[in-house]
C-alpha cells in the first residue's frame, strides 16, 4: 500500500469552541450492515480485479492467489458477485454462515 495521506492536523491546542472541525478519523465500520456476505471461490478467482474496480467501499484485498473482501467494511451489496466474470463470488446469508 502506497501511503498518500498526510498526518492530520493536531488540534490539541485549538479551543474546541471556535470553528467546528474534525481532526480524528471516523472509526465507523459498516460491516454490520451486511445481511449477505461475499464468499470467494479461490479456485475460480483469476485476480482480474473486477471486484476491486466496482466495490463501492473498496474493501477488496489482494491475497497471494486470489482477491478477498475485508468483512469489517463490506456492506454486502453484491456488486462483486454480480460483476465477477469468473462467477467466483457468491453471496451467502450471514445467519447461515454463523451456523456453519
Amino acid at each position: 500500500m502506497k501511503k498518500q495521506a498526510v498526518p492530520l492536523f493536531d488540534a490539541s491546542a485549538i479551543p474546541k469552541t471556535l470553528c467546528p472541525i474534525a481532526t480524528e478519523y471516523s472509526r465507523m465500520l459498516p460491516g454490520d450492515w451486511r445481511s449477505l456476505r461475499p464468499v470467494v471461490d479461490r479456485r475460480k478467482c483469476v485476480k482480474c480485479a473486477v471486484c476491486w474496480l466496482y466495490c463501492p467501499v473498496q474493501c477488496v484485498v489482494e491475497r497471494a492467489g486470489w482477491f478477498d473482501m475485508n468483512l469489517a467494511t463490506c456492506k454486502g451489496c453484491g456488486i462483486c458477485a454480480r460483476e465477477c466474470p469468473q462467477r467466483a463470488i457468491s453471496m451467502v446469508p450471514e445467519e447461515d454462515e454463523e451456523m456453519t
Binding site: 500500500m1 502506497k2 465500520l29 485476480k47 480485479a49 476491486w52 463501492p56 467501499v57
Partner: peptide
C-alpha cells in the same frame, strides 16, 4: 481491469474505511 488495479490499486484509499453510503452506492 487488472491494468487499472496494477496501476492504481496500491495507492491508499483517501476516504476512511467506513462511510455511510447505501449498500451498493
Amino acid at each position: 481491469t487488472a491494468n487499472l488495479y496494477n496501476r492504481w490499486g496500491d495507492l491508499e484509499d483517501l476516504f476512511v474505511p467506513g462511510l455511510g453510503g447505501c449498500q451498493g452506492c
